[in-house]
Each structure stands twice: as C-alpha cells, then as structure tokens.
Amino acid sequence: MSEATNQLLENLNALAGGLFLLTAFGMVAMRQARGCLNLFIGQSLLLATSAALLGLRYHSVHLYGVAVVNLISKPLIVPWLLRKTSPEEVYTRREVDQALNIPTSLLIALALVVLAYFLGLPLSNAVEPEFRGPNVSIGIAGLLLGAYTLTVRREAVPLLLGILAMENGAFFAGIAISRDLPMLVELAIATDGLIIVFIMGVLTRAVQKHVGTTAVGGLASLKEAAVEPGKGEVSGK
C-alpha cells in the first residue's frame, strides 16, 4: 500500500480515537439510561472501526476478526439481551442525583484523560514503532473514564454500561499493542461480556422486584455502624 494511503488510514484511526474518547465523556455526563446505551453502541462501533482501520493498515486478518466480533456482540446482542433481562422501567428513568454534579464530573474526567496520556506515553515508547499510535493513551483514558462512571452513577443500566465501557477501553489499547491475541480468547471475552449483561440484568430485575428501585448505587444498608438490633435477621427462613 502506498505511503499516502497508510497516512490516511492512520489519520482516520486517530479520528476514530478522538470520537471514542468523546463517547466515553458522554457516558459520564448523560442523564438518561437510553442515551447511555446509544453512546455505548457508538463507542463499540468506533472500536470496531479502529480495529478494521488498523487491520487494513498492517494487513492483519486477525484485527478484522476483532472488528467483526465487536460489531456483532456489542451493538446488536447487548441491547437485545438488556431488553430481555432488565425491566423496561430503567430506560425511561432520568438520573437526577449523581454523586457529583455534571460539570465537576467532567472536570475530573478531563484530569483522568491527562493522567492517561502520561501513563500511555512510556508504554507506547517501549513497543516497536508499528504498535505505537494514539490507541494506547485513548484506551487507558476509556478504561479510567469507565471506572469513574462506576463511582458516580447510581442507576443500574449506566453502571452496567460503565463496566462494558471499561472493557472497550482496554480493548482499544489492546488492538494496538497486543493485536495478535488468539482469536479464541477474543471470542471468549466477547461471550463473557454477554454473560455480564445477562447476570447484571437478572440482578437488576431482582432488585426492582424486591426493593422497588433500580438506583442500585443508593443501596447502603450494609455498614458496620448501621446494623440495628433485629436488622440482621434472616428472612425467607
């Protein structure tokens, strides 16, 4: 392939990376669960795009495989599975009380991205030139922003999507630095993501049925000091 095409593919990959970062920011700030889901789908599509572009650039059939697995499992099966398992109510809810207000959240998220840049730099320099690129730092940023989403969110579905977004972040870095991972592992990790959605969906449904809320982050009765006499009784016996 000519030098110009390679340059173009690298630039397109950088663009996909920038948009990937933007979706990660969006998931920190978006109030609606459905909006979060759409952002997650967009993020997964960008991950697949980046994998396909890098596959084209470095002639790696394996990366095409990653792109296809991501294209099928996350934007298609995850939303379907989520609808099957978790209660319908979670989509219509607006999250009014986040742990921190949104501007503060975004500022902290910005700081995390700067941190990710400095974490990613030495890693990029340690691998051969063909594995470098913006992917490592952006991937770490996605990972940290996903973890941050988990700490500020209260609602079940955004929390679940935060977990999957962390995985997306790890993979966004992974497709650059460890691109020849066995295909079997990729498939297993994708399946694993689906099991996460299933189990957490079932848990959400159980919480809604027995506790009457889907704001699972607000559950806080288990503490050292909060046990009042009689509270520790086992029900269902």
Binding site: L123, G139, I163, M166, G174, S178, I196
Partner: peptide, 16 residues
C-alpha cells in the same frame, strides 16, 4: 468486574 476491567488491560500489556 471493575477490578477485572483494570486487570484485563494489565494482561493485554503483559501480552505486548
């Protein structure tokens, strides 16, 4: 799972 997400990145770096 949050811990596992961080560990996944660790394992990918180990592979690199």
């Amino acid at each position: 799972l949050m811990g596992a997400g961080l560990a996944l990145f660790g394992f990918l770096v180990l592979f690199a």
